[in-house]
Design a protein around this nucleic acid. Sequence first.
DNA 1: TTGTATGCGTTATCAG
DNA 2: CTGATAACGCATACAA
Lengths: 382, 382
Amino acid sequence: MARRPTIKDIARRAGVSESAVSFALNDRPGVSQDTRARIRRVAEELGWQPNSAARALSGERSGAVGLVLARPAQTLGVESFFLQLVSGIQEVLSAGRVALLFQVVDGIEAECAVYRRWWAERRVDGVLVVDPRTDDPRPELLAQLGLPAVLIGAAGGTGPVPPAGADGNGAGPVSPGRGDGSGAGPVSPGRGDGSGAGPLSCVWADDARAMAQVLDHLYGLGHRRITHIAGLPGLAHTARRMASLRAQAEARGLGPEHVRSVVTDYSDAEGAAATRRVLAEPGPPTALVYDNDVMAVAGIAVAAELGIAVPGRISMVAWDDSALCRVTHPRLTALVRDTAGFGRLAAEELLAVLAGSPPRARESEQPRLEPRESTAPPPAAY
Amino acid sequence: MARRPTIKDIARRAGVSESAVSFALNDRPGVSQDTRARIRRVAEELGWQPNSAARALSGERSGAVGLVLARPAQTLGVESFFLQLVSGIQEVLSAGRVALLFQVVDGIEAECAVYRRWWAERRVDGVLVVDPRTDDPRPELLAQLGLPAVLIGAAGGTGPVPPAGADGNGAGPVSPGRGDGSGAGPVSPGRGDGSGAGPLSCVWADDARAMAQVLDHLYGLGHRRITHIAGLPGLAHTARRMASLRAQAEARGLGPEHVRSVVTDYSDAEGAAATRRVLAEPGPPTALVYDNDVMAVAGIAVAAELGIAVPGRISMVAWDDSALCRVTHPRLTALVRDTAGFGRLAAEELLAVLAGSPPRARESEQPRLEPRESTAPPPAAY
DNA sequence: TTGTATGCGTTATCAG
DNA sequence: CTGATAACGCATACAA
């Protein structure tokens, strides 16, 4: 059991004072180049690393950020997305020598409790918040605690920087005006309450524009009756997608009897059930847009079971690509996003916020529609 | 921005000394029932939580444990398993108010570097180690550092407690003797080097017995030519499964020309490629056993593409169940494990080790084979 | 039973 | 440029 070297050991071995060591190791002035180099070398030899507790205690940062995943027990659909996201986050974090505290809880109240505890324990310097909701208590809590945060996936609630111009303009060849309608208010540059806790930073993906791409693709193929198998309606990005879909449809003169969204909990089970229900209706849609890959795969399976040809009688699109989409038969047309890149962006932004940068909204790379075999023109009969 | 209350604030408000507060809050003797209760109440009111840095610094534990996932960049197949595992781990950890430090790296060297850093920084009290390998450097490193650890998935290398009797005895109706052959040595109760770092604890699943169940099922249906699409050969559990398969086959008089394993990297791509290759051989197998769900799903897709009926011409079994296995067509016969339970067990064991319990090997609940539609008797022609 | 003094490893503020 | 010295918040051995 090796002993951990301290700054004192280094000072002794280098024949200097402890403060000299501290200065040298932290790149502060007040130490000659020679001694600095010597101290550095000794520290290296001894394999010294700053004791994170001591550092945190003396007013520095804890060197860790937190991420809580609130998952309602059975909803596992987002896993692929999530691990890729974390992987991207880590890439940036570990380069900056920042640790990630990770916690899985079963609801948003528990998530808030975790933030409170982490804050009180001084465990983290900031947090990454996933799954923004339409009515989200977290931004306000975090602002109140003064815990730096970055919202992943959208603008938050209290006073966050909203993605101004986050609509579907100029998306595709049709580009039928504003495709947003997320209800995000105007920019509110600060809170003016002297708390120092301004709006939260966020990283966001342009769901509206992505939905426009999907609609362009399907409309271009000739589809006029399209159903969106949406995810949890409480999530902000679901709401944005639904709003965008409606806006896009209206711009093409298609009413709710042609184009609509039905909500699910993102699980394969509800994805399958929704598919079954929709296909059994009189005058069923000719195309389905699923809000995640798991539901799309479930939908393919349902169609196979019912003997409904894909894409012969119904086309299918998955939002988010994954290995799954490439192993189904037919392979799924999917909206490909650089999820790891999204995570990198979020981590970069959090590091920037911790370094004192003002909050901002950063847009991730545009999603790209990858047409595969599951989409084709609708059957002639329709 | 609220201020964090300290023990001093409590002392002042309760009109006692700081040490009295410390004693009261840590359930130590030396404080009357009354004052203890009062102190507790005040602490509650103030929303006090111990500052983790201060606690760690004064010789206590850091209150965090670590988990590193070394993932070779593209191998994403184990995700479903992994998030369930973490979810189970957290259930136990958060009940014990222990945080989880999580890190994704891209190789085992990087993983070792993380352990070293965490140790030097005093960031974690212990670690959970996943994906034990046949030749694993990590147990030795951890013992050397004196970092408490629990190996998840198997016995480790240096001097860990191996699963004595971890074979397939009494598995099913056939139970053809020892199904192990993992090469795990005899119990080594300690290292006797006075380092205080004894063998590592581990939690393990009886892969050998599980493989016996799978073979019982397939053999019982009449299959005699079986191919195991295995995972990464360097992983200990892959090795155990392969050894068990061979032992089981031999016990039934089936040689390597009938029953064998082919290795992959766990990805859907290699799973598909292996399936394609195996099915193209002269005298192909009548049953395939996949080492994870993702490869099995890919296998189903390949069969569909080639127009090979499942289970009409070939039966398929997935090791590890997930939503995927229930949405394929036909639904996959799978080996169901309580992965979250596995995680809980591991976390419990780590907490026990941190509390001073001697290392031990703890077996998880037996996996259970869930027959679905993808397995049936082989075609009569074979 | 209670209060006081010290240390944990680091950073930061002073004098020299 | 260097060397003491005081925080930071908590635990604890010790004295009252």
